[in-house]
């Protein structure tokens, strides 16, 4: 079947098997290997991308279901040469080790920050809740929470923002 969707701002049309998972479409068909795959049961969140701004597990979305929608992956987060504050936060707070969960975590965090309309304060509990559908086997989460907090603070700061 044929599907047309927007990936990182570009419209793509492709002939696909109806059963093709979005994660495989992104990785194998489009070569966007920043989105990872880590489980068979929709538990790990290594595959999280944004669909119309909402985090989704791309291993649990058929490519066909993404037709007509806007998908964003880790490859689109940096703007020009400027890192997204979430990316910067992960570096500042040592929020990653092997890096395998990192793209999914960053996408979820980006969506979380985007949802905060006027930059209202974000608690650690809310951050933990937001990433609770995702597994990091390396960091023990404390530094991921700090990384997201770093980005939130950055974006809330008067001189900061995006």
């Amino acid at each position: 079947m044929q599907v047309t969707l927007t990936v990182n701002g570009d419209e793509v049309t492709s002939e696909i098997e109806p059963r093709l998972l979005l994660v495989h479409f992104l990785r194998d068909t489009l070569g966007l290997t920043g989105t990872h795959w880590g489980c068979d049961t929709s538990n790990c969140g290594a595959c999280v991308v944004l669909m119309d701004g909402e985090p989704v597990k791309s291993c649990t979305v058929l490519t066909a279901m993404a037709g007509g929608h806007e998908v964003r992956t880790i490859e689109s987060v940096e703007r020009g040469d400027v890192l997204d504050p979430v990316q910067q936060g992960f570096v500042e707070e040592h929020g990653l080790q092997c890096g395998f969960c990192t793209p999914g975590m960053i996408m979820t965090a980006r969506a979380l920050l985007d949802r905060r309309a006027g930059g209202e304060p974000l608690t650690d509990a809310e951050i933990r809740e937001a990433i609770s559908g995702q597994i990091c086997r390396c960091t023990g989460y404390t530094n991921i929470v700090k990384a997201i907090r770093w980005a939130a603070d950055q974006e809330a700061a008067p001189a900061g923002g995006r």
Binding site: R27, T33, G34, T35, F90, V91, H94, L96, G99
Partner: peptide, 21 residues
């Protein structure tokens, strides 16, 4: 020291085995 590995990982530019085609 901040890690030298981070710049590629935060951009999704690591090369894991399944990324090799």
């Amino acid at each position: 020291l901040k890690r030298k590995e981070d710049p590629r990982f935060i951009r999704g530019q690591g090369t894991y085995v399944d990324d090799v085609t």
